[in-house]
């Protein structure tokens, strides 16, 4: 598995797309910092970018890489290697190289701007950790989808649809149901709904770090307990880990079952 991981990782790290991805984050970081002149405003703007673009790019990259390296995969399948190792190796190769682009691309401008001497370092770390989690989750989801569908177009379409669903439509339905059921106690429901969507979960984790917890907490006792203490942060991270493991297990399951 590690050999395959190494090959895909080096292959990707040398590719043009990783570099473009890295440059995109680098430029974004530079522009935000030097136009805003304020670390915490830049982090708030980045929050929007991270919760939307990181999953999208993870999805597209994952699907693209799987279909592109399909011939190589079929070659590998002919060798005496465990099936799950091949796919997991490729998956981790993609996910790790994307995460490195994200971390380096955003890290450099922030460090240059004086991150280590500012008190915003923990907010930035949360942003990076959450971004890395999202990369791993969405790459895994896209791999799972790509393995499930032979047809490239179909696979691509469904992967994008899943992203659209989780990034936009889910929140829309969430909002409408909150407004529709406004007469009922909603705090447990809304926390549950947040947990069921990794993008919402990531956003909430960032909001907790950005001190917006007080804004959220005034609504009710359940919110207050969740957002006001470390309980919320720990639970959110646990569920994020859970969200990462589930699609990876899906890849293993699908790859063992699939008839090539």
């Amino acid at each position: 598995m590690f050999k395959i991981l190494k090959y895909s990782f080096y292959d990707l790290i040398r590719s043009r797309w990783s570099f473009i991805y890295l440059m995109f984050y680098f430029l974004l970081g530079v522009v935000l910092l030097f136009l805003n002149n304020n670390l915490s405003n830049a982090i708030v703007t980045l929050l929007n970018v991270v919760t939307v673009l990181v999953p999208l790019i993870g999805t597209i990259f994952g699907v693209m890489y799987y279909y592109d390296s399909k011939e190589f995969t079929e070659l590998l399948l002919a060798q005496p290697i465990k099936r799950s190792n091949i796919f997991l190796g490729q998956y981790f190769g993609v996910a790790i190289s994307l995460s490195i682009s994200l971390i380096v691309g955003l890290g450099l401008p922030f460090i240059y701007y004086g991150l280590f001497i500012s008190d915003k370092i923990f907010e930035f770390l949360t942003l990076i950790i959450v971004g890395t989690f999202l990369t791993f989750i969405f790459t895994a989801i896209s791999f799972f989808i790509a393995i499930s569908f032979e047809n490239k177009i179909k696979g691509f379409g469904i992967a994008i649809l899943v992203w659209l669903l989780l990034a936009v439509i889910y929140d829309g339905i969430f909002l409408i149901s909150l407004i529709y059921f406004e007469q009922y106690p909603l705090d447990v429901f809304s926390l549950g709904a947040v947990m069921l969507n990794p993008i919402d979960l990531a956003r909430t984790l960032m909001l907790l770090k950005l001190d917006i917890s007080a804004l959220l907490g005034y609504t009710g006792a359940v919110f207050k307990k969740f957002f006001g203490t470390n309980f919320g942060v720990i639970l959110s991270y646990l569920i994020l880990i859970f969200w990462t493991i589930i699609p990876i297990l899906g890849i293993v399951w699908k790859s063992n079952k699939k008839d090539f």
Partner: peptide, 21 residues
């Protein structure tokens, strides 16, 4: 305006959907 009517919706603060709306 929405948060005023249904305070729990504040959990959607800064989400893409809200920005679009």
């Amino acid at each position: 305006y929405i948060v005023n009517k249904t305070p729990e919706t504040i959990i959607l603060l800064r989400s893409l959907f809200i920005n679009l709306v």
